[in-house]
């Protein structure tokens, strides 16, 4: 049961992020919601590669006959974090420009494009 704990936290983070996306009105909080979803997914990926009492996957100084954690999910997570940084930066810069033009960050008032 305790082994499943990280998965529960990951799914909880994703659900919290989706909650923020659906019910928060401030654009910055929506960006935070996206970051929460992303953190949840990253945590899920890292947890996938964890092996009980495993060591870091570096061959050079590795002691024999000890399990290593999987390196692939770590590479995936690293890539995903970098991509997440780029998307967050882009989203926040759009939020700044929206504030300059609309003088508000309330998502319910930013609806010039409708119908």
């Amino acid at each position: 049961m305790i082994g499943n704990f990280p998965y529960i936290i990951a799914i909880l983070l994703v659900i919290l992020g989706i909650y923020a996306l659906l019910f928060k009105r401030n654009l910055i909080k929506i960006v935070i919601g996206i970051d929460l979803v992303e953190t949840g997914v990253n945590l899920f990926l890292v947890t996938l590669g964890y092996r009980n009492s495993g060591i870091a996957p570096i061959y050079t100084y590795a002691p024999k006959a000890k399990p290593m954690v999987l390196p692939t999910p770590q590479a995936l997570t690293l890539t995903s974090i970098v991509i997440g940084l780029a998307t967050t930066a882009l989203l926040l810069s759009f939020a700044i420009f929206i504030y300059r033009h609309y003088k508000t960050l309330d998502v319910n008032k930013i609806k010039e494009l409708r119908g």
Partner: peptide, 18 residues
């Protein structure tokens, strides 16, 4: 320099990211 394009970009980007 157009507010509407920023609105469109923000909406599209959030949906694309999720």
């Amino acid at each position: 320099w157009q507010g509407k394009s920023q609105e469109a970009a923000f909406k599209t980007m959030t949906l694309y990211t999720v």
